[in-house]
């Protein structure tokens, strides 16, 4: 038996219960040159939908060293349009090629009537929407032949029609569809501040066994006429209040992989690595306390 020349060498097949970082194009060379001591890497699936070129080439080389998670932002699972089969097929191809440990998408929609808004838009939390979203997750999982994780989004509005709290919607969704939960504690904090609910109570309402991954990121505060709204910009360090919430999440959910995300005003790689080390330190501390 011979190995096909140029066949990809895949690195670790499982993600450790440690912090990882979001891999962005500006850091490709720095990651390959320094191989930073982070537990794993996550990429946006859509950035690798091309047929070839630098993104796939780098990902192949980097995957040889790190376990991987594919995080989608464009599948528009909550849309009432038919599922985008082309998008799904590309995602499936990526999964086959890179064998990620985790594959995730969002509790949101981003297209209707064939038009894409290319943003993570809020769903009304109703029985209808829950039924629709659960069926769509089952469809996606069947097409991909694997479990996916669904992430709670940051939101800037609530619908009058919503009758179910988001934590309950997410829990029932996971139980019905068999998906896992990607809990973004920054998004919980942002939405809690924007809508006036208790972020810690949100954590306590999510059953322990459903959570497979945690996200951490930075937000910005916009103020208008005496009111403020928090925007999930991924442009800053993790906020101290979000670190507090992360400690609570670790205490509740135990040692699970956490990811530091940064997309806008991307700093040097070392800054992300330091954030990941901070997350690891919290994880270790909580475990020492538990032991």
């Amino acid at each position: 038996m011979s190995t096909k020349p140029g066949a990809s060498r895949l690195g670790p097949s499982s993600i450790p219960a440690r912090a990882g970082i979001g891999l962005r194009a500006d850091h490709y060379d720095a990651v390959l040159e320094t191989l930073p001591p982070v537990g794993w890497l996550e990429v946006h699936s859509e950035n690798y939908f091309g047929a070839g070129g630098k993104p796939l080439d780098y990902l192949e080389r980097i995957r040889a060293h790190y376990a991987l998670s594919l995080h989608g932002v464009g599948l528009s699972i909550g849309s009432t349009d038919p599922l985008n089969q082309r998008h799904l097929a590309k995602l499936k191809g990526l999964i086959q090629r890179f064998e990620p440990t985790l594959v995730s998408e969002h509790l949101s929609w981003s297209s209707v009537g064939g038009r894409y808004l290319n943003d993570l838009l809020p769903l009304p939390y109703t029985e209808d929407a829950l039924d629709h979203f659960s069926k769509r997750v089952v469809q996606v999982q069947d097409a991909l032949g694997r479990q996916i994780l669904i992430e709670n989004p940051s939101s800037y509005l609530q619908y009058a029609a919503s009758a179910i709290p988001e934590w309950e919607f997410l829990t029932v969704l996971a139980e019905r569809s068999g998906c896992g939960v990607l809990l973004d504690v920054n998004n919980i904090y942002v939405s809690a501040r924007n809508h006036g609910f208790d972020a810690s109570a949100y954590l306590r309402a999510i059953p322990r066994h459903l959570v497979r991954e945690i996200h951490l990121a930075g937000f910005t505060v916009n103020r208008f006429a005496g009111s403020e709204i928090l925007i999930d910009t991924h442009s800053r360090p993790v906020d101290p209040a979000v670190w507090v919430l992360y400690r609570q999440a670790v205490a509740r959910f135990g040692a699970i992989p956490a990811l530091v995300e940064w997309d806008t005003d991307l700093p040097e790689l070392a800054v992300l690595v330091a954030e990941a080390e901070h997350a690891d330190a919290i994880l270790e501390e909580c475990h020492v306390q538990a032991a």
Partner: peptide, 30 residues
């Protein structure tokens, strides 16, 4: 479906600037 109606209303309000009475479906809260 009510969900589709809401999504079409949202897209009209955000992409086309045709809000109509869509903001009645949103809780104001400040």
């Amino acid at each position: 479906s009510r969900l589709r109606e809401l999504q079409l209303g949202f897209a009209a309000a955000v992409l086309d600037g045709r809000s109509g009475d869509f903001d009645h479906q949103i809780l104001a809260r400040g």
